[in-house]
Amino acid sequence: MKIRWFNTLPVIIFIALLLCLWLGLGRDTNLLPSALLEKPMPVFTLPDLNNQPLSEKQWQGKVALVNIWATWCLPCRTEHPILLKLAEQGVTIYGLNYKDDYQDALLWLNQRGNPYQSVARDVGGLVAIDWGVYGVPETFVIDKKGNIRYRLVGILTEEAWQKQLKPLMDTLQEE
């Protein structure tokens, strides 16, 4: 077979492009840098599941995950069992229930189990804006002083936990 090298140029360029896209795919979907990295959590006071006021002060003191979720969010259904497993292993998880119905949220947690230490209900979605949330689900890692240290956009998968969140949380525990 006769191959002219000039004719192979398009396919070579394409492979280079594909490689870039593939690398981009691995990165972007997991990590969107937050403007709040290394900064304290935004101040808020919201009702919790018992309609008692809850503020960010109550989430300080431990290395923890803050998970933004909603009952209408489909990926949250995939994520929920993973959160439950982490909670069983002793990971502290706080929930920010985003633009949701109170009754729906209660029903969800009763039927599927509650992985959260406490849940702040952000009915209007304004607190989520302060956090820079861009789509549900999202998960933040906070340190003992209540500073945001990491932001994960999208589903918290087993892989993301093992590779990114767990190592980070282990080092934060030692700080």
């Binding site: 795919l25 861009y134 999208g154």
Partner: peptide
Amino acid sequence: GVLTSVHAFANDPERGVFIL
């Protein structure tokens, strides 16, 4: 969802791999 755009939302990475 590989590019951040006003059109995109938190996307499913599995889809991206398949399209790629």
